[in-house]
Computed example of a mutant assay.
Amino acid sequence: MSCSNEKIICEHVPRHRILQVALFIYVGLAFGLATIYYDLGSSYGSIQARGSLLMFISTFLTFMAIGGFPSFVEEMKVFVRERLNGHYETTTFIVANTFSSMPFLLVISLIPGAIAYYLTGLQKGFEHFLCFASIIFASMILVESVMMAIASIVPNFLMGIIAGAGIQGLMALGGGFFRLPNDLPKPFWKYPLYYIAFHKYAYQGLFKNEFAGLKFQSNQAAGGIPHMTMVKKF
């Protein structure tokens, strides 16, 4: 094995360990969510609880993906050095880096996702869970991509994490949950941030996947007779 390959492998080991630790943290958070939102049921009040749960998952759980930023910085140092030596191209590095993370992100999306999904009693059906996990998986890949881009610009650990957290915070604020899209100020927040923020698409996907077709007891329901069906069109 060449010295270059040994360096690359050595730099990838800490990142894998970070992802393994992240898995345990995600599992712990999933059990925490399952405890707070256990068996939401179909009462009228569960609508708000479901929305809060999905918002927390799509915003704060994906937010934790910035924890891998220090390993990105170390990988960038190796990449720049090996790129100058002509060992591999930029496209090769990006593709390899992305695919090397996908199995870990998939596991993180499935295991904690299943705990939070089934114990809280979200919409039944494996296809709904698959959609739920796919959205979380795609969001985490996107966050990692953003952090990789930041690592190429800001080589400092602390400044990079601050920048990544700030960007995600702005996207979450402009994603259409904290303020409805029509209520967002048009300069910057509505155009272009609302359409750039991945939270917009994560919120819409999770909410449509969860609420479309569900029936809830209205406030006046006694014995579960009158029901309200959520609108299928979003």
Rank of each mutant, 00 (worst) to 15 (best):
V154E: 09
R83L: 05
P181G: 04
Y118F: 14
M102W: 02
M147Y: 05
G224T: 09
Q48V: 06
F63L: 13
Y118H: 07
F157Y: 10
D183A: 15
E11D: 08
G32E: 06
G67E: 00
G169I: 11
A149H: 01
N5W: 11
F234M: 12
L54R: 12
K186Q: 06
E75K: 14
G213N: 08
I150G: 10
G68I: 04
V13A: 09
Y195R: 04
V95D: 00
M64K: 04
G175A: 12
A34L: 01
L206R: 11
I153V: 13
F129T: 07
L105T: 00
M148K: 10
D39N: 05
M140K: 03
F60C: 07
A30L: 00
F126I: 15
I196D: 07
K233Q: 15
V80F: 13
L84Y: 09
A34M: 08
Y88I: 00
Y118E: 03
F132N: 03
F234A: 14
A165V: 03
A163G: 03
A165C: 05
A221Q: 12
Y37M: 04
F99E: 00
N182G: 03
S71D: 07
L84P: 00
F132P: 10
G224N: 13
N182D: 06
K190A: 10
Y118I: 01
I150A: 11
Q123H: 11
I225P: 08
A172G: 09
I9M: 11
P185N: 06
R50D: 05
E82W: 03
H12Y: 06
F56K: 07
S71P: 08
G41Q: 08
F137M: 04
Q204K: 15
M76A: 04
M1P: 15
E89G: 10
P112E: 00
N182L: 05
S134E: 10
T92D: 03
I9C: 09
F72C: 05
G160D: 02
A163F: 05
